[in-house]
């Protein structure tokens, strides 16, 4: 039978993939956002698994709020990507270094 550990391991692995994705794809803002989405998905899976195995609905409510905030985060993030692409014609982070110099 499935235990809590199965889901904890799965969401841990998913979280690790997301974090690795952030480091691997530092040049591509869009893939960076996708890796962030994966991290949040791992967190949500963790919350829901805890909610199921501890028989507490609070976990699912919290996952709902995480989804809400993730949706708004991605909306604003994509808007920023679109604006940057419009004004610079690139979203490569290596070429966006006006503030560094």
């Amino acid at each position: 039978m499935l235990s809590h550990t199965h889901f904890l391991l799965l969401s841990g692995a998913l979280f690790a993939i997301g974090v690795a994705g952030v480091f691997v794809n530092r040049r591509h803002v869009l893939v960076l956002l996708m890796a962030l989405e994966l991290i949040l998905l791992a967190v949500n899976t963790n919350l829901i698994a805890a909610s199921h195995y501890l028989q507490d609905l609070g976990g699912q409510v919290f996952a709902l709020f995480v989804l809400t905030i993730a949706a708004s985060e991605i909306a604003v993030g994509l808007a920023i990507v679109v604006v940057v692409f419009r004004s610079r014609a690139t979203i490569d982070t290596e070429e966006l270094r006006e503030l560094r110099e």
């Binding site: 799965l10 692995a13 998913l14 993939i17 997301g18 690795a20 994705g21 691997v24 893939v31 994966l38």
Partner: peptide, 11 residues
């Protein structure tokens, strides 16, 4: 499937 898709997403 989930882990494969996640790895494919970031690579």
């Amino acid at each position: 499937v989930l882990l494969t898709a996640a790895v494919a997403t970031v690579t």
